[in-house]
Nucleic acid binder design. Structure first.
Lengths: 334, 334
DNA sequence: CTGAAAGCGCTAACAG
DNA sequence: CTGTTAGCGCTTTCAG
């Protein structure tokens, strides 16, 4: 059923029907007649047809590297909650960690004429720069900072600094570092700098033999930890750039019979479920993923409502959670 | 830029442009001229406008209870992988475990004229029945069975049976059950029946004092486990309907100093990350979530291509993974 | 193989 | 407050 048929059914003009659905002037009688007809027929205007006229689709594109990553999922849930309230629907672009696909979805979503895009960013390439510049669409970046665009990010440096300091102040003197690629400005570079900052405060020199890069997975945390643990003088504490990596490292330590936290303190970043239930509850920095998603959605909606809104950076705080994996005092077994 | 302007730019007619993008008859010269113009201008036909004519949107709706649940995320990644290959985009409906919202998204997506819907189902209400019947849209249900619709589900009964049997054959005689609501046919009822089947095979009567229902969370697993553990005679093994619940129960056992697996064997269902890294690696049944998503997507695409395709049920197998939490022989400490 | 022209279902001036 | 009307950007006959 289209608007013409429906208008005839309700005994009003097409214009009245359109006004009914778009909040225009309408007498009470007509409004009621239409409402009744809607209830009877279930009529609803076609989104495609109205998009073609209004140049808005009610669609928001979300581009993310992976769904089965707790942090991404939580951000996306935050986004979904806010956008749903405002009647927007979410278009999903899963890139499987392929930066080229991020760019691809950017154009794909643009072609679909989404009203705005939220990008859970990983690393930025030249292609990103070009895609951003030719986007001409409200865009909010989550998890990273990028000049001239609205961003919601975490205090990665601060969190890494605080965690490393926590371990050093408990007596560790050979800090190990298990990070991610520095192509990732936030989780890679920033957290690395936080680590270094804590070291320098304790007058410690970073030791390249105690530092290693891993993928964002438990498995690779396990694998890369091996490299740090097999050396002649192994570290006495380990800062890991993510909880997943930390858990992998913890598993390797357990297998090698390295006691946690006495011989090895470990911490991660993120506060995901996995750290809470690990063999030794993981000390970590809680990052506010869901809040980040909600804030990103709010920022985007503001920009959609007013395209002239100046871009803005939101840096969310962190919260240090001290747990077994770094708690040297009351030694805990079993 | 619209098709008229673009056609003028390329020096061809609108019809030629349309044919170019829709695989119609076109001379080689025109095809090249258009291709060149596309490269120069980046022109792409408006999806809204073409939807209005073709009655297809290239959109597939996915309705799910929660993103930050590993199983849902993995199913959705499977869906995304297949649909993306075929040029479809995913519209996301997160219901936050509210069955009413499932129904709401069903209509919302229908209004958007998605080409098909995949529902990661939880429980079915009367409202679902009505919504299904008035949908007139290809629909595939994942995780549950529902008459007359295509479904992709797991062998919940078989998995629960095999796991319970595994524990009983290792000598357990007071099996505890930590399940989910039986309103959930698959995870609730089926797994319960699998549990019962194993018991009856060992000539054991289910003991209501050893059985309890929990939410789908670690926290509630922890809480409800308490009820089973505080009784005069506690169970000597625990079948949990999900990994999350099992992990919660495991935590409570550890706190109470109940040794796993000697005093208490525990198993879950799903094979999520969390069970692999738990204090005692969790025995579980691997369910093929990603495969389920991929199969569901394929089923849906077939139905979209041919609306007359008869509905079909796919029941995926499981795989028992025996780990520490039920391995009585070589007692493992740390 | 091609272009002209008729609409798809809707919104938004516009003139009452 | 209301209806008429002219498109929005596209696909698809239809007659060449």
């Amino acid at each position: 059923m289209n608007i013409t048929e429906f208008a005839a059914y309700a005994g009003v003009s097409k214009a009245a029907v359109s006004r009914y659905f778009n909040g225009g002037y309408l007498s009470a009688e007509k409004r009621q007649a239409i409402q009744k007809a809607v209830e009877e027929t279930g009529y609803h205007p076609s989104e495609s047809a109205r998009s073609i006229r209004t140049h808005r689709t009610g669609l928001i594109g979300v581009i993310l590297p992976k769904l089965s990553s707790e942090s991404c999922a939580r951000v996306t849930e935050g986004i979904s909650q806010i956008t749903a309230q405002e009647g927007y629907q979410l278009l999903l672009g899963v890139t499987a960690n392929d930066p080229a696909k991020e760019v691809e979805y950017l154009t794909l979503f643009k072609q679909r004429q989404v009203d705005g895009i939220i990008l859970l960013a990983t690393i930025f390439t030249q292609a990103h720069r070009l895609a951003f510049d030719s986007l001409h669409l409200p865009l909010v970046i989550v998890g990273q900072q990028y000049p001239r665009y609205s961003c919601v990010c975490h205090d990665d440096l601060g969190a890494a600094y605080a965690l490393t300091k926590l371990m050093l102040s408990q007596g560790a003197r050979r800090p190990g570092y298990l990070g991610v690629t520095t192509q990732d400005e936030a989780a890679g570079k920033e957290r690395y700098q936080g680590f270094l900052k804590a070291l320098s405060e304790f007058h410690l020199r970073p030791d390249p033999r105690l530092m290693c890069t891993a993928q964002f997975t438990i498995d690779d945390g396990y694998t890369q930890a091996q490299k740090l643990l097999e050396g002649a003088r192994r570290p006495d504490c380990l800062f890991c750039a993510t909880d997943n990596i930390a858990i992998g490292a913890m598993q390797r330590c357990r297998e090698l019979g390295i006691s946690i936290p006495d011989q090895m303190m470990i911490c991660g970043v993120g506060d995901t479920k996995i750290g809470q239930v690990a063999a030794f509850a993981l000390t970590t920095a809680r990052l506010h993923y869901k809040t980040a998603g909600m804030d990103a959605a709010r920022l985007l909606l503001t920009q959609i409502a007013n395209r002239e809104t100046p871009s803005k950076i939101l840096r969310l705080d962190y919260e240090i959670l001290t747990r077994e994996s770094t708690n040297r005092k009351p030694s805990e077994t079993m």
